[in-house]
Every structure is written in C-alpha cells, then in structure tokens.
Design a binder for these strands. Structure first.
Length: 835
DNA sequence: CTAGGAAGTCTTTTT
DNA sequence: GACTTCCTAG
C-alpha cells in the first residue's frame, strides 16, 4: 500500500503542455467557443472589462473554469499579451493546472504568463531585485526558511536573548512574528507599540531573528511577501516596472489573503494602501500607468486560514475598498447533489454576519447522507472501510480513487491506515509527515542549501556534524564565538577554524576536513553541474550514505530509499526544463532554460501538501486520458481538501473537541471558522456524503468520551440516514459481522461480566480494553476545579484557580501561583490537588 | 564526544 | 503514544 507521499513534482512534470505545444498557434477558439457552456454570471465574469471585479464563487460553481476562460478571453479577444497577465493561485498544483488548461485553449503562448502562488511570484521578483533590497548579505541566492528552520533559528535567538524558554516557546513566538510580518510591521514599530515587558521581549526576538535571517542570506515564508511589498514601497521605480508589466491581475482564493498580500495587490493595481486610506486616487508622477485590471475570486464561507493570518475582511470589504467595483455571484453548483448542498447551506447559515448565498443544483436530490456512530475510532474506521468495500464492488462504477476520507487533524489518519492496510484497500495519505520533512531528506537538502548559500547558518550548522564526524557542541560554540568576535559569517569562521579560541586540535582537523569536502562540492555547483549529480556527490562525499548503510537501525533502510527518491526527483527536474511555474518567462523566451541547483531548491521549498494529489478529472471538462492508476482512497485533513472534489466523501471524527477542535470550543470566531471548515468538507462530495463519529476515542493514549459534533445537529434531520446511533452503540455484537458476533459476545461476557452490565457502562469490548490500558498506567483522577478554588501543586506550591477551559481530559486551568506566576496546566497531567 | 535512556512536551489546520 | 530534549555514563 503506498503510504509514501510522493514528492510533489509529478503533476508539474505531467503538466507539460503537449497538446498544443509545437503546433503553429491555430486561429484559436472563437468568442462563442470561449463562452460555450457558461451560465450568465459566469459569462459576465469572463468578458468583464474595466473596474475591479469580485467573483463570489460558491463551492463547485465552476470558478476554475471562469478563471481559465477569462484568461483565454483576455488573450484571444482583448489581445492582451500573455506576459502581461499575472494570475495568483493558492497552490502550485492549481497554478500548473490552470496554465495547462489555458494552454489547451490558446496554445503555447500561455507559458509566458505568470501563473503562480503569491510566494513563488514574490520569490521570482525578489531574486531578480535582490540587490535593491538594501541588505548587505541578501543576494539572489537567498535561502527560504521553512517552519523547521525558523524554529531552529528562533530557538537560538531566544537563547541569546536569555528569554525564559517556558514563557517564550519557539512556536508561539514564531506565530507572533509571523503576525507582525503579515501586518507589515517592522521590529521598530513593534517595539514602539509595546505596552509591557512581554511585548518588548517579542520585539527584541523579532529584531534579532530578522537580523540573523539577513546574516544568513535567508528569508522565511512571510518575508517573501513582506519584502516584496517593502521593495515596492521603497523603490517606486521598480514597482512601476511591474505595474507596467502586469496589466491583468487575477487572484484566486481571495478570502485567504492576508494583509501583506492585500497590500501587494493594491500596489500592483495602481492603488497604494496610503492612497486607499486617504481616499485619494492620485498617482504620483505623470508617467504613472493606469491601474491594472483586477479580478478576485473567492468565497468568504470557505475562509479557513485565519490562523495563519488570512483576513476575511479582505473579501468582505472588497466593495468598500474598491468603491466602483462590480460583484458577480456564482451560486449554481455543478458538483454536488441537492441533498449535499442543502446540508451545506444549513450548516453555514449558522454563522453570523455572513453575506447571504445559497448554493443550488439541478442535479437532483441524490442519495441521503449516511451517518454512523462507532464505539471507538477503530469501530468507526471499520465502518468506513466496510462501506468503501461495498461501494467499490457491488455498487460498480465506483473505484477506490473516487473516495476520500477527511479528518480534522493529521493524527487521525492512523486508524484508517491500520484498517486499510489490514484489508488491503489501496490508499494514499496526503500531508502529515511530508516527504520533504523527513530527517534524511532535510539533511540532504541542507547540504545543497549550504552549497548554494554558505551564509545559511541554520543549514550549515545542521550538516556540520551530520553524519557524526567529531564536531560537537563545544567546537561549534568556539567557531560561533570566533564568528561573533570578528563579525564574519559562520562559514567564514569555519574556514578559519585555526583562529578559533579554545578549539581542540582534533575538532579543528575534523572541521578542516569538512571544509575541504564542502569546497569540492561547491566547485561542482559553480561548474553548473546538474542538481541530481551534485546531490549524489553530496551523499557520497559527505559520508552520509555510508553512515546509513553501515547502520543497523532498520529505519535507515527506508531512509536510503527516500534519498534515492530525492535523487530521482532531482533528475527529473534537471531533465525537464519547462516543468512547473518557476521557470522565468524571460528565460523561457530566451530559450535559456537550464534549471540549476538553486531553482531546484526553490521548487522544493514551495511545494504544498495539496501539490501531491494526483490529478482528478475536474468539473465536467472531460479528461478522457485521466491516469488509470488513481485507484486509491485518499486520506487527508479538511484543510488540504479545499479546492478538491470526490464522488464519495467520508467526514470522520465528527465530535465536539475533535471537530470542532477543542481549542475552538470557547471562541465564537474560531468556532465559525471551524464551521466553514465543515462547509468546505461537505461541499467536496459529489454524490455521497458520510458523516461519522465515535463515542470513545483514545487521544494521547488515554480514552476520551466525546459528545457529538454540534455540526451534526445542524444537518437537517430528514437528510441523514443514521445507520447506527449512540443508543445502539452499547451492543457488543457487530451487526455487519454475523459470524463474528458470537465470539464477540463470549469474550465480551468474559471480560465484563454480563453483557447488560457492559451495555450500561457504555463500553464496547474495544473501549474496555482501552480503558484497562489506561488504568494500568498511573492515571490520576482529574480534579474538578472552578475559578477561585485553592489548589496545591507538587512543585509550584499554593495557588488559586483563575480560569478553567475545556472538558474532561482536555481541561486546562490557569492557576495563579503567586510568586511562581500564572501557569496554564493540563489537568490530566498536572500534579495539582484541590484543597 | 557520543550513545542511550529518562523525562518532558504535545496536536490544530499550512504557503 | 510519539517525538524531542535533557542527562548521564562511558
């Protein structure tokens, strides 16, 4: 069973526009052909010209179609130069797909368009303009730091600042910094606005973090956007160049843009934020170009990324931001049955302050929604598995590839993997432990990054002693000290290790060897060797491969395989020059398409989970040559499911505390975001929707008893066919396995006494087992606390409860321990006792 | 300096 | 329960 997520390249490689490419551009489709099969509002959006346009595109309303047809229309009918079009999508996969579909309409010219994510577009701009950024060290070979790199760096920063690691954990600090960047605030502003020592500490962390990034010639994800905005602000000339270039701007998934992205759009459309906020539409200078034509597409009901800075107001206030804007509503749905849409509408309508919108379909009612309540998550998974079996054989016509299983958090995929593995159901998990996050892959990539950008301290430190070559913490500290003392980069200090104070000769020799190897490899990079060739040399010369081969850890075998896979990916990349959205149009024009190591790294840095999903034939526009190998059940989180569709969808773990997530339970706005997530999930289904939950679910190794998700109660009751409800879940026999029920009742009886006793106690045998497992551990009773209660804690002493949130296993209390401060404690673990 | 074990942390969601 | 980080012995 394929459990290894593919690295996310194949779709780009497959997206080679083979159809039209090479032929002389035909006269292209006529205007009628471009509008064929579109409904009225869709047509309006396609042909619209002039003022900014907002397309409110409900789920499944054919917005991709509108976008591609519009682009084709711009080129074909309005004679727009393809190079003057900038289309922003949410994922690289969406970009590649869109490019391909436009190419089908207008031919190879489409390649010159910029169709990419915000991040890729900004990287391209920043690489080109790197020298104008105003940082000494930042050059066009800058590294892009992902979450893990950021974490390492911020940990070093917090250490250097002597911040209490308990109060300033890397995750929250980074989240904070990310927030600043999304709001376009620089460290000085943050410091000026700081109201207390806590916020000042954040400002210091932000400041030093930024300095370290720049010293390392690196940018993080948020920098990519922020620095582009800043570049345009400080260098109006450069901004003007891009304004002139991009005459048409199309933004997909507009509801998920953050403030920085919003600012960028405004800059490119000729209106700066200051101009907007002062209400002035004056452009400075007589040579200013008129604003580009803007079309944004989105659906406020599908905004699910507020947690990473997306600002739903961007779409809600579009008409205020652009007073002369037009709005087009796409409400007809071409994807789902009316039953599914009615359910989706019923759920989303509970959100307050949303603009009314009702999806409808003429596809007929279709099947009822099927509900199931399992005893445990294993029982729930078994139901899903049985049901898929049934659907894929007797119900003929459905393949495993037509089915998707969604869940709220990645951890929930486990039970499904277990049962699919047992029953031999082919499946594929999207996301989770990503290929590019595996240790060995990251090690290899760190080598490559260090070669391209030796200033990249995080990568350099990572590989310095990987594999072990006798350069320990002490040696690293000595080199670091030298670097600080003589203000040089870490890499320079390594090269001059002989000057490092207090460095053991043995370590020094080891460092020299390392530097020599790196020097050799760097020469290969300079000589322009192909990425795959360099990668192979890295694995060889660094001794990394050898150390894995000699290891007796069985895991290392699969590590070797993963590295082989990475080499294969690099080879494919090297051999296919046009693949993917990051080839610079100018280079394509010049026939200059020899992607180097740096391009490879950039691509790798910007792949998304959803980029790995195999292509499915999209809405109606048939793809008869669709790959036959997609016969696998797809497992993924609700977040990665956005933008996709499947004939059959299972929404699992529908429990309060799981979905909606426990952290959202107490918060109105967060709850509404969860509800939008439910809406997204429901509307992924074309024909059949299943909702399921389980009464007992083991979270963190101990069983938890979760109530039904409130979203289940929001489904119209007559639309759901409950196969099994909570009332039935007390039974020990499994209805679907007649032959199994006898033995079940036996063992149930033996374990729990009389079956009725088991029933009354609301536990299935499996749950009882889980329960017993929990009891074998020293699990303590959870104290029932309320604000005001006095407690003692084993190490913090006396305290007073301030707040209590969450329920049962997940309850968290804030407790004031006086001089020890206020602590947030997970009551299940915390050694607190009520007085 | 490294290896191995113990102890502590944690789970949203991701470009 | 799984992953990381910390600690200790060689």
């Amino acid at each position: 069973m394929s459990t290894t997520p593919l690295p996310g390249f194949e779709h780009l490689l497959a997206a080679k526009p083979t159809t039209e490419e090479g032929r002389t551009p035909r006269r292209g489709p006529t205007a009628e052909e471009l509008l064929e099969g579109l409904n009225d509002p869709q047509r309006e959006a396609v042909v619209h010209a002039g003022v900014p346009l907002l397309v409110v595109a409900g789920a499944g309303s054919g917005k991709t179609r509108v976008l591609t047809r519009r682009i084709a229309w711009l080129i074909q009918e309005r004679k727009a130069h393809p190079g003057s079009i900038l289309a922003i999508t949410f994922t690289n996969k969406a970009a590649a797909e869109m490019k391909e579909r436009v190419a089908e309409l207008v031919g190879g010219r489409a390649k010159i368009m910029w169709v990419s994510t915000f991040h890729s577009a900004c990287v391209r701009i920043l690489r080109k303009e790197a020298e104008h950024l105003g940082y000494d060290r930042v050059k066009s070979n800058f590294s892009i730091y992902d979450a893990q790199d950021q974490k390492r760096l911020i940990t070093m920063v917090c250490n250097d600042l002597d911040l209490d690691p308990r109060k300033f954990q890397p995750g929250p600090v980074l989240h904070q910094i990310s927030g600043y960047k999304n709001e376009l605030r620089d460290p000085a502003e943050v410091r000026a606005d700081a109201k207390n020592s806590f916020e000042e500490a954040y400002a210091s962390a932000y400041e030093l973090y930024q300095r370290r990034l720049r010293e390392a010639n690196a940018l993080d994800f948020d920098d990519l956007i922020m620095e582009t905005v800043r570049l345009f602000q400080t260098k109006p000339g450069i901004r003007e160049t891009y304004r002139r270039r991009f005459r048409h701007l199309l933004v997909d998934e507009y509801q998920d843009t953050n403030h920085a992205q919003y600012a960028l759009i405004h800059q490119l459309c000729g209106q700066d934020l200051e101009e907007v906020s002062t209400g002035s539409t004056n452009l400075e200078g007589a040579d200013a170009v008129p604003p580009a034509e803007l079309m944004v597409v989105g659906d406020a009901d599908q905004s699910i990324y507020a947690f990473r800075g997306a600002d739903i107001r961007n779409i809600m206030d579009f008409e205020q931001d652009f007073p002369d804007a037009r709005t087009v509503m796409l409400e007809q749905n071409y994807r789902s049955t009316q039953t599914i849409l009615t359910a989706a509408n019923a759920v989303i309508e509970r959100n307050e302050g949303r603009k009314p919108k009702r999806l409808w379909s003429d596809a007929g009612d279709g099947a009822k929604i099927v509900g199931y309540v399992g005893d445990t998550e294993h029982d729930e998974a078994r139901f899903v598995s049985d049901e898929i079996d049934r659907l894929t054989d007797e119900d003929a016509g459905l393949r495993a590839g037509d089915v998707a299983v969604f869940y709220r958090t990645n951890a929930q995929s486990r039970v499904f993997e277990e049962i699919f593995m047992r029953t031999g159901m082919p499946y594929k998990v999207v996301g989770g432990v990503r290929f590019y996050e595996r240790r060995e892959v990251r090690d290899a990539l760190a080598y490559l990054r260090a070669l391209v950008n030796p200033d990249d301290q995080v990568s350099m430190r990572r590989i310095l002693n990987t594999p072990k070559r006798g350069i320990g913490d002490r040696a690293v500290a000595c080199v670091g000290e030298l670097a600080t003392r003589d203000s040089m980069t870490f890499w320079e200090a390594l090269r001059r290790a002989d000057e490092a104070p207090g460095l053991a000769t043995r370590s020094q020799r080891n460092i020299e060897q390392f530097v020599a190897v790196m020097g050799e490899l760097m020469q290969m990079v300079e000589a322009g060797e192909r990425p795959d060739v360099i990668l192979e040399s890295v694995l060889d010369k660094s001794g990394y491969l050898k150390s894995l081969e000699e290891s007796d850890d069985p895991q290392d075998e699969s590590r070797i395989e993963n590295l082989a896979e990475l080499v294969a990916v690099a080879r494919e990349f090297a051999e296919d020059p046009i693949a993917g959205p990051s080839a610079d149009p100018a280079d394509v024009d010049a026939g200059l398409v020899e992607p180097g190591l740096a391009d490879f790294l950039e691509r790798v840095a910007l792949v998304a989970d959803s980029d790995q999903i195999p292509d499915a034939p999209p809405d109606g526009e048939a793809e008869p040559d669709a790959p036959a190998e997609t016969g696998m059940v797809t497992l993924m989180t609700l977040h990665t499911a956005k933008g996709l569709e499947f004939p059959v969808v299972f929404l699992t773990g529908m429990e309060d505390g799981v979905f909606p997530h426990s952290r959202a339970l107490g918060d109105r706005t967060e709850l509404e975001e969860e509800r939008r997530l439910a809406y997204v999930g429901i509307t992924r289904a074309r024909q059949r929707l299943y909702v399921s939950r389980s009464v007992v679910r083991s979270a963190w190794g101990a069983p938890a008893h979760n109530p039904a998700s409130r979203f289940l109660g929001e489904l119209p009751i007559d639309l759901v066919d409950w196969r099994r409800t909570e009332a039935e879940q007390t039974q020990w026999a499994r209805p679907t396995f007649a032959s199994d029920s006898r033995s079940s009742s036996y063992s149930g009886g033996q374990r729990l006494g009389s079956p009725t006793a088991a029933g009354r106690r609301n536990f299935s045998s499996a749950a009882a087992r889980a329960d017993a497992a929990a009891k074998s551990k020293p699990s303590r009773a959870i104290p029932n606390l309320a604000p005001g209660d006095r407690v003692t804690h084993d190490s913090f002493g006396l305290g007073t409860v301030v707040t209590v949130e969450g329920v049962a296993d997940k309850s968290v209390a804030s407790i004031d321990f006086g001089s020890e401060g206020v602590k947030r404690l997970l009551l299940r673990y915390a050694p607190v006792e009520k007085l």
